Amino acid sequence: SGNANTETLPSGWEQRKDPHGRTYYVDHNTRTTTWERPQPLPPGWERR
């Protein structure tokens, strides 16, 4: 039932692989990409 990797990503993020097989992350909220895995927001924090 779903990929465990995507469940731990913050809302709006997606994990992808480039043509060389390297994993990167897409932030659909800001339309940016990063090599660093995004950290889920700490409990009690809200994204503004």
Rank of each mutant, 00 (worst) to 15 (best):
S1Q: 04
S1V: 13
G2E: 15
G2W: 11
G2K: 15
G2S: 14
G2P: 09
G2I: 11
N3F: 07
N3I: 01
N3V: 07
A4E: 10
A4W: 07
N5I: 04
T6S: 14
T6K: 15
E7Q: 03
E7K: 07
T8C: 10
T8M: 14
L9W: 06
L9F: 04
L9P: 03
P10E: 02
P10T: 00
P10Y: 01
S11M: 08
S11A: 10
S11E: 08
G12Q: 05
G12K: 02
G12I: 00
W13K: 01
W13L: 03
E14Q: 08
E14D: 06
Q15P: 06
Q15C: 05
Q15W: 05
Q15M: 11
R16Y: 04
R16G: 06
R16W: 03
K17M: 09
K17G: 03
D18N: 04
D18Q: 04
D18R: 00
D18E: 05
D18G: 03
P19N: 09
P19G: 12
H20E: 14
H20P: 01
H20C: 07
G21M: 02
G21F: 01
R22F: 08
T23L: 10
T23D: 01
T23V: 12
Y24H: 01
Y24N: 02
Y25W: 10
Y25T: 04
Y25F: 13
D27M: 00
D27N: 10
H28Y: 07
H28R: 06
H28V: 07
N29R: 09
N29Y: 00
N29D: 08
N29E: 09
T30K: 05
T30C: 04
T30G: 05
R31W: 02
R31P: 03
T33I: 00
T33W: 02
T34L: 01
T34R: 04
T34M: 03
W35V: 04
W35N: 04
W35R: 07
W35D: 04
E36K: 14
E36S: 13
P38G: 01
P38S: 01
P38H: 02
Q39I: 10
Q39F: 12
P40G: 11
P40R: 10
L41C: 11
L41S: 14
L41Q: 14
L41E: 10
P42T: 10
P42S: 11
G44Y: 05
G44E: 12
W45F: 14
E46G: 10
E46F: 05
E46Y: 05
R47D: 12
R48L: 09
